[in-house]
Each structure stands twice: as C-alpha cells, then as structure tokens.
Amino acid sequence: MRYAMALDIKKCVGCADCVVACQTENNVPIGFARDWVIENGKGVYPELFLHFESQRCNHCDNTPCVRACPTGASHVIDGGIVKVTHNECIGCGACIEACPYEARYFHPDGYVDKCTFCDHRVSKGDNPACVSVCPTSCMYFGDLDDANSPVSKILRERQFYVLAPEAGTKPQVYFVK
C-alpha cells in the first residue's frame, strides 16, 4: 500500500477551502496551517501565466525528516504516511531544518506538527478532509499500488511534476499539468 495525492493545477482556483477544511478537521491552532496555497506567477505582461498549488507534506518515500529525528518521534506508518508522536518529540527542530518543503511547524504546545494525510479518515476508507471538500474536485487521493484508485488513474493519463525532485526525497504529492 502506498498512499499518494495528485492535484490538477488546471482545475485549482486557489480558494483555500482545503486549508480551512484541514484546520477544522485537525483542530489546527489559529495562525497555523498544515496545508497552504501558493500562487505561481510566470512571464511578462501581456504574456502572463498563473497557476495555484495546494501544498502540504509530501509524505516522501525517502524521508529526510525521519532520518534527522533524534528520538524516533517522526516515523512512517503503513501506507507511507509520515507522522509525529507528540509525546516523543522534544521540539529540537531538526526535522524542520531537514524538510525541503517547510511542511513542519512548531505547534504552540511545543511539539512538531504536520499533515497526516488524515490517516484517521483514510483508515476508514474516507478521503482526507482537504480532498473531500475541494469545490472543483481538483484533488485525487488513493493507493498507488491499486491501479484503479483515482490517483493511479490520473497519473497514468496525464503529465505531472513533483516539488524539488532534486532534493532526492521522492515526494508523493503530484501536480498534474
């Protein structure tokens, strides 16, 4: 089993519904967010291009954050989801320094917090909160080992890119062009 997410940048309108859904679902403290929306502007007037990217933890295959963690609080669970055990985390910040995506932050309580791919929903067969609320249905989630999952299907049909592939992290959040 290998969970992954794909985001169609042609459909995304940058409404940030995914951000609010995540904050509500996971009780993320005010001012913090486990996912965020980036506006990418390209070109010179009048040839301007714009696309949005909803970014979050990439749940990498090769996890620099788990490697850097001195206590093993950062770990990988079934399906390749990267999680943090709160009461093992000492808040040293090594994983934040090691992550090329700035996906981790200090929770006001001190421990490091991040996207969990909503593993509490996924284990029941539901989609993560962000995916389930997307008004343009631009997000796809599923198991890469299952050829019929929505994410496998769209990655088969369309071209895609990942963020900072040169970092060698093998990220599992794909952006479909």
């Binding site: 940058g14 940030a16 951000v19 001012g31 913090f32 967010a33 996912d35 965020w36 929306v37 980036i38 506006e39 990418n40 502007g41 390209k42 070109g43 010179v44 949005f52 934040i96 320094e97 700035e102 932050y105 200090f106």
Partner: peptide, 19 residues
C-alpha cells in the same frame, strides 16, 4: 519573470520568509 506568493494564511514567523 517568476513569482511565488502564498495566498492562504500561514503566518508562521520561524518558517517564512525563510526557516
């Protein structure tokens, strides 16, 4: 020209503008 802006609220001072 290439420009990146964050459009959703995530004002975490020890992550932005840099770690």
């Amino acid at each position: 020209m290439k420009e990146q802006l964050m459009v959703s609220g995530r004002e975490i001072s020890n992550l932005y503008p840099h770690v």
